[in-house]
């Protein structure tokens, strides 16, 4: 039996008829064709599917589309505003915070909430703050740097150097 749901995705309202078992990540990817949200595991472990649901970062592989009825979603496609990269998007690019790019959308959305709650996190708080997002390529050093850079940008402070400390 299909359920009608109304969801705002990246500012645009959609009314959809969905199977109750439809996972939110499949609604985003398969129904709305927003393929920037990825799937990397079956066990809510990897965080590649992280999106914002009413501003909270959640793993969309473990939420039903019907649970998002009446709510607002932000996916990676909705992060840049008016063609302007968000501080985190800029931070990831400037600090080489990504290699293959597969975990990147989830990382950016998770870090978006992290910085919204605490714009000046310590390195330890950042590492624990992204503990639900696996990255297999970068070794995390530069992801931490990217988030620190974005934090500085949000706080309006001088931006840290993006040159690699590789002497």
């Amino acid at each position: 039996m299909l359920k009608e749901i109304t969801i705002t995705v990246n500012g645009q309202q959609h009314t959809l008829e969905v199977e109750p078992r439809l996972l939110l990540v499949h609604m985003i990817r398969e129904v709305l064709n927003l393929t920037g949200t990825h799937i990397g595991c079956d066990t809510s472990s990897c965080g590649a599917c992280t999106i914002l649901l009413d501003g909270k970062s959640i793993k969309s592989c473990t939420v039903l589309a019907v649970q998002a009825n009446g709510k607002s979603i932000t996916t990676i496609e909705g992060v840049a505003q008016d063609n302007q990269l968000s501080p985190l998007q800029e931070g990831f690019k400037e600090n080489h915070g990504l290699h293959c790019g597969f975990c990147t959308p989830g990382m950016i959305l998770r870090a978006t909430e992290l910085l919204a709650q605490n714009p000046n996190p310590t390195e330890d708080e950042i590492r624990w703050g992204i503990a639900g997002n696996l990255c297999r390529c970068t070794g995390y050093n530069n992801i931490v740097k990217a988030i620190q850079y974005a934090g500085a940008k949000i706080r309006g402070e001088e931006l840290p150097s993006t040159e690699p400390e590789f002497v």
Partner: peptide, 12 residues
């Protein structure tokens, strides 16, 4: 709470 799963899971 810090040791339960991860931040996204704790949001749900």
């Amino acid at each position: 709470t810090k040791l339960i799963a991860d931040p996204q899971v704790r949001n749900m």
